[in-house]
Structures are given as structure tokens and as C-alpha cells.
């Protein structure tokens, strides 16, 4: 067994060195449709009853086709940027790749479990920072021992306690910057095989931004493949060698960063 894993490691290492491309994410004609309740229609009871009697489909349920027929293959060691105007389906695509949003049709195949960087949804403003660190860690799937071991690092990284003992106060008493720093620190405490970052870079003050950028670079090294959603073309240029350009849910362009960004900037008139 040990011998085999040694062989495996050696061949993978050799593979990456020479440039053999090992796919980590394969998206095959992926379609994602959101169903939104309460989108329209006359909001009164008579209208609703008439609809039911006439067996019409409720106009209250609107379908939003957020990702249309997207296919791509991502390889180990790649950092891929996702660009596109607001509402073009970038975040939805990431969620579908992570398996958090079910696909309407098509499939995504992944190596291991891709994770979104972010724990905001699991944290509670009424709890102390301390309890949120533990809750967030558990929500991301860390074990209790792991959290205990990393607890101090997380708090130190966030810098919450630099101006006094704030970690034992409820999170709702934090300034928005402080809360954002703590959230990032918790989220960045875990390393992932396939890491997806959704505009998480620009939080906190200048000093913290520097620190978080360094942390993201570290995470990138640990992760097999990185996806980065950003409207900041500079941060895309700095980190990604390949870019996917989405517009209205459709994959417009997929290629090397310079090429795609040039076309994107021309299109958006920058």
C-alpha cells in the first residue's frame, strides 16, 4: 500500500512538473435554473383564486435561467478567474460547481469536494466572536480538535483583539470592517482541494487587505485548483492564468488571462 502511494505521488509530481494535465473539475453542458417566488402578478386574493380555478401557472413563480449550457475543464494547478458584469451568473456557476445548487441539466464532475470560501451564512450576530469562530469552524467541517488548535491563529489573524478584548463581545457590536475581518479569518482557516473565492479579497483596512491577500496566496498553493470571481481586473491578472468570461449565463470566452481580459475591457468600454 505504502509502495503504491509512493508511486502515485511520484507520478503526480512528475506529471505536474512536465505539464501533464490532470482535470479536477469538468463541467458538461451545465444549466442552472432558479425558481423565484413572489416575482410578479397582481397581489390580490381574487386574482390568485382565478388562477387556481383556470389552472394557470402562477406568475408568482418566475424562472431565472442563470447558467446556460456552460462546459469547461479545469486542471490541477490552475487558477481560473471568472469575469462578467453584475448578474451574469458567476456566483451561481461557482455554487453549481461546488454542488450547492442542483443543476437543471448537465453535470459537474469534481475531484474531491470543491468549497466556497466563506462562512458568513453560518455565523450569528448575536453570539460572541469566540463562539462564532467555533461554530463557523464546525460548519466548514473542521473537527473540534482542529478548531481548538487553530483558534488562536484565527483570532490573531483577524486582529480583533488588537484594540482590547473584543472576541468575547457579540458580533453585532463589531464595526462592519471588524466583522468582515473575523469572517475572512474563519473562512481562510481551512485548506481545500478545489477552492472558490467569490470577491472575498477586498475586506477590512489596508493592512488587513495585505494580510488576506497573502493568506489567499497560501491557500492557492495548498489547493489543487482555484476559482476567483472578481470585478477587479488587476487582482485577476495577478492571480489567474486563465479566465472564463460569462455574460447572461453563457460562457462567452475561455482562454488565457490577457486575451480574455483585453476582449472584456474592449466590450465593457474600459
Amino acid at each position: 500500500m505504502a509502495e503504491q502511494s509512493a508511486v502515485t505521488e511520484a507520478s503526480t509530481a512528475a506529471g505536474t512538473a512536465v505539464g501533464a494535465r490532470v482535470p479536477t473539475v469538468v463541467a458538461d453542458r451545465l444549466n442552472v435554473v432558479y425558481r423565484v417566488h413572489g416575482g410578479g402578478g397582481k397581489g390580490n386574493a381574487v386574482a390568485a383564486l382565478r388562477r387556481i380555478v383556470r389552472r394557470q401557472k402562477s406568475p408568482n413563480v418566475r424562472e431565472v435561467h442563470a447558467v446556460k449550457d456552460v462546459s469547461f475543464v479545469a486542471y490541477r494547478g490552475e487558477a481560473i478567474g471568472l469575469i462578467g458584469t453584475n448578474g451574469s451568473g458567476k456566483s451561481t456557476l461557482l455554487k453549481a460547481v461546488a454542488g450547492l445548487l442542483p443543476a437543471e441539466s448537465g453535470k459537474v464532475y469534481t475531484d474531491g469536494q470543491p468549497s466556497l470560501l466563506g462562512v458568513n451564512a453560518a455565523l450569528m450576530n448575536d453570539l460572541t466572536g469566540e463562539r462564532n469562530v467555533i461554530l463557523g469552524g464546525l460548519a466548514m467541517g473542521m473537527s473540534q480538535e482542529e478548531i481548538r488548535a487553530k483558534y488562536q491563529d484565527i483570532v490573531d489573524f483577524s486582529g480583533i483583539n488588537e484594540k482590547g478584548d473584543f472576541i468575547s463581545l457579540p458580533m453585532r457590536t463589531y464595526s462592519s470592517g471588524m466583522a468582515a475581518r473575523l469572517r475572512f479569518s474563519i473562512a481562510a482557516a481551512k485548506s481545500h482541494d478545489v477552492l472558490m473565492i467569490d470577491e472575498a479579497l477586498a475586506t477590512g483596512d489596508r493592512k488587513f487587505q495585505k494580510r488576506s491577500e497573502a493568506r489567499i496566496r497560501e491557500l492557492r498553493k495548498e489547493a489543487g485548483t482555484v476559482f476567483l470571481v472578481s470585478h477587479n481586473n488587476k487582482s485577476i491578472r495577478d492571480t489567474c492564468e486563465r479566465v472564463l468570461w460569462l455574460e447572461k449565463g453563457t460562457l462567452v470566452m475561455d482562454g488565457p488571462t490577457d486575451e480574455v481580459l483585453k476582449a472584456y475591457e474592449k466590450e465593457t468600454g474600459k
Binding site: V26, R29, V73, L100, K107, V108
Partner: peptide
């Protein structure tokens, strides 16, 4: 895509 995924042992996400 499906064959590629199978070759490298990728599993369906979600």
C-alpha cells in the same frame, strides 16, 4: 466530458 471524468476518477458534484 463524462469519459474524461471517469478516467480521472472524478465524481459528480453535489
Amino acid at each position: 466530458p463524462a469519459a474524461l471524468a471517469e478516467k480521472y476518477g472524478l465524481s459528480v458534484s453535489g
